[in-house]
């Protein structure tokens, strides 16, 4: 770790001002990712701005019938929040598929959105990585790339976003509220995470000094027709190779609305509106699910070690949609995949 100074923010404005004043400042809340990265010397902030005492906690119903989740709400509190668990079981399920009970207790909603990739080269300062050290090259492209992206990658970077929660939030079309030196704004989660392009060092579209304050969910509409299916190299406490968040609104035997997002395959939760549209208006069927899967995976390319993710993702999408259509979401504790 590089020595750093510590500031405990007393107000949001205090924190925003502190970030603006000192370019090497970073916000810290749960710390489950940032402290780890600092120990690896991947991140070396000069100052940490501790925002945990700010009033950004709590899960509150919105006038629109949705839910507003304070950015500091721990992942476990959100997953077990009675209203969140009842109205957004897909989100609760995705959160409980990630990390461990201990990490979920510490990790916050805002921090989860800002998780950095688990690409092994990003974590190893002895290797080249454009995300960590821009211009140094991408070791993963020709190296160990079992967990690399199959979609939306660039010459510069093939990293994947590791979050489970974000995949569900993408499917649920969450709105992210941020506040910064230029005031407050809200953006769809789809616009928060970036594709790497030629600037892989930037994970998100936030401007300097902007702090995530809340995540807002639109009113619930999927009932029991959802599933979060996560596939990984052991049955718990491992990052996704591929994960699928599927949610369907079904009326009269037909899909009215479909939402489908993938984790573990791209630099951001992967969602293509057209793939969902293919499902809408039709009766749920394996053929329709396969068509949607193929559309969502259109353009997928492997690098060798991750080639398997393409067929795996296709099958996982079909399976998760089947579970969602059947109203039989995947359990995160019973390991049989229904």
């Amino acid at each position: 770790m590089t020595p750093f100074s510590y500031l405990r923010a007393q107000s949001l404005q205090d924190a925003i001002a502190a970030l603006a004043a000192e370019p090497g400042s970073r916000v810290i809340a749960g710390g489950t990712n940032l402290v780890d990265l600092m120990k690896y010397d991947v991140e070396a902030p000069r100052r940490l701005v501790d925002i945990t005492r700010l009033p950004l906690h709590g899960v509150i119903p919105t006038d629109a019938g949705g839910l507003r989740i304070g950015a500091l709400t721990p992942n476990s509190d959100l997953a077990y929040h009675p209203q969140a668990a009842r109205d957004y079981p897909l989100l609760a399920s995705a959160i409980l598929a990630g990390a461990s009970a201990q990490l979920r207790n510490a990790a916050t909603t805002g921090g989860n959105l800002l998780q950095r990739t688990r690409c092994p080269y990003f974590y190893d300062v002895a290797t080249a990585c454009n995300k960590r050290a821009p211009g140094s090259g991408c070791s993963a492209r020709t190296g160990i790339n079992r967990n690399a992206a199959i979609l939306g990658a660039s010459e510069a970077c093939v990293a994947t976003h590791p979050s489970d929660m974000c995949v569900a939030l993408a499917a649920l079309e969450a709105i992210v509220h941020v506040e910064g030196p230029n005031g407050a704004r809200a953006l769809p989660i789809a616009d928060l995470h970036r594709l790497p392009g030629d600037a892989p060092e930037r994970d998100v579209t936030l401007d300097r000094g902007e702090i995530i304050t809340a995540v807002e969910l639109p009113s619930p509409r999927f009932g029991r027709h959802h599933s979060y299916l996560k596939l990984r190299d052991r049955l718990s406490y491992a990052f996704a190779l591929v994960s699928v968040a599927a949610a369907l609104e079904i009326a009269g035997g037909r899909v009215v609305t479909a939402r489908l997002a993938l984790g573990g395959v791209a630099h951001k939760p992967w969602r293509i509106r057209e793939a969902e549209a293919l499902l809408e208006g039709a009766a749920p069927s394996r053929a329709a699910f396969a068509e949607a899967a193929d559309r969502l995976l259109q353009g997928a390319v492997g690098l060798g070690g991750n080639d398997f993710k393409i067929p795996l993702a296709r099958r996982a999408i079909i399976r998760a949609l089947t579970q969602a259509a059947d109203g039989a979401p995947q359990s995160q504790s019973r390991k049989v995949i229904n």
């Binding site: 688990r118 092994p120 080269y121 190893d124 002895a126 290797t127 070791s139 020709t142 190296g143 160990i144 079992r146 190299d233 052991r234 049955l235 718990s236 406490y237 491992a238 990052f239 504790s333 390991k335």
Partner: peptide, 25 residues
């Protein structure tokens, strides 16, 4: 244990990516 063949370096030298069985397994 996974080595990068070019670097001769172990790329999963941790308990997050070198998977030993967990309770659930």
């Amino acid at each position: 244990t996974v080595w990068d063949a070019t670097l001769g370096r172990i790329m999963n030298a941790n308990l997050g990516e070198y998977h030993i069985p967990s309770h659930a397994d």
